[in-house]
Design a protein around this nucleic acid. Structure first.
Length: 298
DNA sequence: TCACGTCAAGCAGAT
DNA sequence: ATCTGCTTGACGTGA
């Protein structure tokens, strides 16, 4: 069991997700920003190593506009050595890595252009992980997509599109249950047809489910990850008190987290804490989990 | 130095 | 028809 947080560290005065406006795009600007982002990523990873945080989600903003037609720059070659160095740091310290393309990336859109753009963006994500020479346990997590008032055919379209993807994407892509359209049950159907692993989101499942217990869900999903995929990844959050259903909490609910660990104690997996205060909650979670026999220290 | 309008991109559901 | 939320902040102009 590894525990981590996504993309941003609020403790360190360094942001690896800096970007700029499309209007102010230039090759020089891109070089400066990407250099900054890579340096900060390295700094954050070192912070994580010092603090036993062995799971991290790399921001999709690492290379701004990488998949946009405006970008003709060969950033892959230009920053090759930086990627290799960061990749070595990750592997040497046995850190698990994930990425999560944002909401604009939809494989099952009826609009062919959106599908094509999404494919380019997925390729960009895969390239980041490939340039770091990470193995296929480093994953890219994605939701199934939209429903377009016809969920059945939208799922079928996802399956068809998935099958046509480049293998560099397919070896890393996993699907995640969401909180409004595609439940764990829907993901399992897609898994049957494609063998794609399912990343289990505990919080989404609490909002949209078909009666499966957390224990059953974790058990089922664990079995879908082969050796080449690594351990099951789980996204964990809880409800923000007093807000609309689905809003993520600001800080970890330690009581809820302890219950979650207790309920799932028969299974091993890696936990990504989707909580607003990022590393602060991750450190609390690690402190709680450090007595757990599943927990791995760096 | 600060306020604030806006930012590449999709979709669903609420207002 | 428009706004909000999603992993939700932060860029950049104008004063």
């Amino acid at each position: 069991m590894k525990i981590g947080y996504p993309c941003i560290n609020w403790t360190i005065d360094c942001k690896g997700n800096k970007t700029f406006r499309l209007k102010s795009y230039s090759e020089d600007r891109l070089k400066i920003i990407v250099k900054n982002n890579l340096d900060c990523l390295e700094t954050i990873l070192k912070y994580n190593i010092d603090n036993n945080v062995s799971f991290f989600r790399i921001t999709s903003d690492l290379v701004p506009f990488a998949s946009h037609p405006i970008c003709k720059f060969n950033w892959q070659e230009h920053f090759k050595e930086d990627f290799v160095r960061i990749g070595e740091l990750i592997q040497k310290n046995n850190i698990r890595i994930s990425m999560h393309p944002d909401q604009f990336i939809v494989l099952n859109s009826p609009d062919e252009n959106i599908f094509q753009r999404s494919t380019k963006e997925l390729l960009y994500h895969a390239q980041i992980l490939d340039l770091m020479k990470l193995d296929s346990t480093a994953k890219i997590q994605l939701h199934i997509g939209g429903a377009y008032k016809d969920k059945k055919s939208s799922i079928t379209r996802f399956i068809q599109r998935y099958k046509e993807l480049d293998s560099v994407i397919k070896k890393r892509l996993v699907i995640e249950n969401d909180d409004r359209i595609y439940s764990l049950k829907d993901c399992l159907y897609v898994n049957q047809k494609t063998n794609i692993p399912i990343l289990f989101d505990v919080f989404h499942h609490s909002i949209l489910h078909n009666g499966e217990t957390i224990n059953d869900a974790v058990k089922t999903c664990s079995g879908l990850w082969d050796k080449k995929d690594g351990l099951l990844m789980v996204d964990y959050s809880s409800q923000k008190f007093g807000e609309n259903k689905g809003r993520h909490t600001e800080k970890i609910d330690t009581k809820d987290f302890k219950l979650f660990l207790e309920e799932t104690k028969s299974y091993d997996f890696d936990i990504m804490l989707e909580i607003k205060d990022k590393e602060k909650s991750a450190l609390k979670a690690i402190d709680i989990a450090k007595e757990d026999p599943r927990f791995i220290k760096i």
